[in-house]
Amino acid sequence: MSLFFASSFPALLVIIEMTSDYLKKEENKTDLILNLILALASVCKDTLDTPNCLEKLKSSNKDELILRAMVESTVVYDHLSPAGAFCKKSAFPMRPVIQTVKNFSQESVSKELLGVLQHRSKHFNDPDTPRHLQLLIK
């Protein structure tokens, strides 16, 4: 057995760790940072759900990039928020985010990103996570 292993998402891990360290020093900015991450995910979701924007993104091959940004910001939010993104009282719009990922035109990308939400999220398997969200991802 090796003593060393690599993360499958090293950049995401660094972002989460650095932001967590910053929030430990600046506890009064937690809500501000979480709202900023929430806004990023919401803008990405709204952009992908707007037909005119989606057409322009597809023509320049940026639709997948926006989708990945939305999923990664969801994972970051889930790690930084004490309750996570999946709990009922979360401000994060998990159901619409999951639906946007599922409805993406490239099925392989959609499956990959649903796996990221399932396996990279901190609170996905918590008892507080609504069962319908878990079933929607699986």
Score class of each variant (00 low, 15 high):
Phe4Gln: 10
Ala6Trp: 01
Ser7Val: 04
Ala11Tyr: 12
Ala11His: 12
Leu12Tyr: 13
Leu13Lys: 06
Ile16His: 13
Ile16Ala: 04
Glu17Val: 15
Glu17Ser: 15
Met18Thr: 08
Met18Gly: 07
Met18Lys: 13
Thr19Cys: 04
Thr19Tyr: 01
Ser20Pro: 07
Ser20Thr: 08
Lys24Ser: 11
Lys25Phe: 09
Lys25Thr: 14
Glu27Leu: 05
Glu27Asn: 05
Glu27Val: 04
Asn28Leu: 15
Asp31Trp: 07
Leu32Ile: 12
Leu36Thr: 03
Leu36Lys: 07
Ile37Asp: 00
Ile37His: 00
Ala41Phe: 05
Ala41Pro: 12
Ala41Ile: 06
Ser42His: 09
Ser42Val: 13
Cys44Thr: 07
Cys44Phe: 04
Asp46Pro: 03
Thr47Lys: 02
Leu48Ser: 00
Asp49Glu: 09
Thr50Arg: 08
Thr50Gly: 02
Asn52Met: 06
Leu54Asp: 00
Leu54Tyr: 00
Glu55Pro: 00
Lys56Tyr: 02
Leu57Asp: 03
Leu57Val: 06
Lys58Pro: 01
Ser59His: 12
Ser60Gln: 14
Ser60Leu: 10
Asn61Glu: 06
Asn61Pro: 03
Lys62Asp: 00
Lys62His: 05
Leu65Tyr: 08
Ile66Leu: 11
Ile66Lys: 07
Leu67Tyr: 01
Leu67Arg: 01
Arg68Lys: 15
Ala69Asp: 12
Ala69Asn: 14
Met70Tyr: 02
Val71Phe: 12
Thr74Gln: 03
Val76Lys: 04
Tyr77Leu: 10
Asp78Gln: 10
His79Arg: 07
His79Phe: 12
Pro82Thr: 10
Gly84Trp: 06
Ala85Ile: 06
Lys88Val: 07
Pro93Thr: 08
Arg95Glu: 03
Pro96Asn: 07
Pro96Leu: 06
Pro96Ile: 02
Val97Gly: 01
Gln99Cys: 14
Val101Asn: 06
Val101Gln: 04
Lys102His: 13
Lys102Thr: 15
Lys102Pro: 05
Asn103Asp: 15
Ser105Leu: 00
Gln106Cys: 09
Gln106Ala: 05
Gln106Tyr: 05
Gln106Asn: 08
Glu107Tyr: 08
Lys111Glu: 03
Leu114Ile: 07
Gly115Ser: 13
Val116His: 15
Val116Ala: 11
Leu117Ala: 07
Gln118Asp: 09
His119Leu: 15
Asn125Ala: 15
Asp128Asn: 07
Asp128Glu: 15
Pro130Lys: 12
Gln134Val: 13
Gln134Arg: 06
Leu135Ser: 09
Leu135Thr: 14
Leu136Gln: 14
Ile137Val: 15
